[in-house]
């Protein structure tokens, strides 16, 4: 019998100035927050459509009306990101795949493939990101300690995380590589992959405003 599977999402509430700050400039903080909200909504839609029995949102901030039904919400705890990951994973038991909110181009099939990897084929899974980090990590039997000491957001994060899994006796299956939204160029590239998404629509609004900015900037501001 296939054990009960969990899909865990690490997310920040889309509050201006607290999310996607690397998009500014060219974005204003409000734009970045709107884009983050769109990406989070797209992500949660896909998670809703995948085959996981349990869906958990580990949230930094307050939930809003953007939260769909069917998600358990737990508050993130800890100072560093590795600590927050460890805390989020400590509420999970059984096979679990964890993602973030920077890859709205995921599909239910991609998530199901990752869930199957940890439920059926391997003791762990890791989805590498194009920048050297990772967009998803999975474990058959969660070991929160695998995040300790792994620096986040470096070009070697993926290699370090894979090594940490192996040091804990887990052998990850490598999932598809995805681009995660870090910079404005990343956002354009990801939006092009999912033209009918909220992410793409929100980005179009931002691009439109940026294109009109030269004329509006001629208006004197006191």
């Amino acid at each position: 019998m296939t054990p009960r599977t969990t899909l865990l999402v690490m997310a920040k509430a889309p509050v201006p100035g607290r999310v996607k700050t690397r998009l500014c400039p060219p974005c204003r903080p409000e734009d970045a927050a709107a884009l983050a909200a769109a990406a989070l909504a797209d992500t949660l839609d896909v998670v809703d459509a995948c085959g996981a029995e349990r869906r958990i949102l580990a949230l930094d901030g307050e939930p809003g009306e953007w939260l769909p039904a069917g998600f358990e919400v737990v508050a993130q705890a800890g100072d560093s990101f590795p600590d927050r990951l460890a805390a989020a994973w400590s509420v999970v038991d059984g096979p679990c795949l964890q993602i973030g909110m920077d890859t709205p181009q995921i599909t239910p099939a991609l998530l199901d493939h990752g869930l199957d990897a940890v439920a059926l084929r391997a003791t762990a899974a890791l989805g590498p990101a194009s920048d050297g980090g990772w967009w998803s990590i999975g474990m058959r039997h969660p070991v929160p300690a695998v995040f300790a000491g792994v620096p986040m957001s470096t070009e070697w994060t993926g290699v370090r995380q894979v090594s940490a899994l192996r040091r804990h006796g887990l052998e990850p299956e490598v999932l598809s590589e995805l681009l995660d939204i870090d910079t404005f160029d990343d956002a354009r590239e990801v939006a092009a992959l999912i033209p009918r998404s909220r992410t793409a629509a929100q980005l179009a609004l931002i691009v439109d405003r940026l294109d009109r900015r030269p004329s509006s900037s001629r208006v004197a501001v006191p």
Binding site: G149, V150, V159, V162, S163, A164, R166
Partner: peptide
């Protein structure tokens, strides 16, 4: 087979496939 990088570092444990991907 694993390549291990050890000593005054955070140990890396890599497969040949990991090396190929670098």
């Amino acid at each position: 087979y694993r390549l291990r990088i050890t000593g005054v570092v955070d140990d890396l444990v890599l497969t040949r496939a990991d090396l190929e991907a670098m």
